[in-house]
């Protein structure tokens, strides 16, 4: 099996890595690019822990091949903060205790960001359905939904 050289943009930076052609983007990001903030909870698209955006579109990186990243643009949780300034979602997740173990948090943040960019003032129901692809086993989602509401409010104020 021959690896191919993939050239892509990750969190605004050009990144190149050699990748076996059947390797998932999740594995490539974690093991070749070193972005272990992208988590594997299931590997089959059912838990959302590996959520990233690919050309602005929310996807599970476990269901994308590494080679498909060629020439595209990827955003992960590692790219959310602006320098040392956390994204409002990151701030509100901490403030509202929206994480316990924290393994699902990167996926939730990426998915919530995609939601708020599309829909700046979502209802509780819209938040819940938009985040249905992200499993959390610790919190019962209560504080996560509240944190997303608070971040949405904050972001609308800034606009």
């Amino acid at each position: 099996m021959s690896a191919v050289l993939v050239s892509t943009t990750v969190n605004g930076d050009t990144v190149e890595f050699a990748c076996p052609q059947d390797e998932t983007l999740l594995d490539a990001l974690r093991n070749r690019v070193g972005l272990t903030g992208v988590k594997e909870g299931c590997g089959t698209g059912d838990c959302g822990a590996c959520s990233i955006t690919l050309n602005g579109r929310l996807v599970c990186s476990c269901l994308v091949l590494g080679v498909e990243a060629s020439g595209n643009s990827i955003e992960t949780v590692e790219g959310m903060a602006d320098g040392n300034k956390l994204h409002p979602l990151q701030e509100k997740f901490i403030e509202h205790a929206a994480l316990q173990c924290g393994i699902c948090t990167p996926g939730f943040l990426v998915a919530a960001k995609a939601l708020l960019e599309r829909k700046p003032n979502p209802t509780v129901e819209e938040i819940r359905y938009a985040l249905a692809g992200n499993l959390c086993r610790c919190t019962g989602y209560d504080k996560i939904v509240r944190a997303v509401q608070a971040a949405a409010k904050e972001m609308r104020k800034k606009k």
């Binding site: 974690r30 972005l35 272990t36 903030g37 992208v38 988590k39 594997e40 992960t76 949780v77 590692e78 959310m80 903060a81 956390l86 990151q90 997740f93 901490i94 403030e95 205790a97 994480l99 924290g102 393994i103 948090t105 990167p106 943040l109």
Partner: peptide, 18 residues
């Protein structure tokens, strides 16, 4: 705020497979 909060919202926290 919890002391491990920033690590966990930025993807820096190291879990079992990391």
């Amino acid at each position: 705020e919890r002391p491990d909060g920033i690590d966990k919202v930025t993807g820096r926290a190291k879990y079992g497979a990391d």
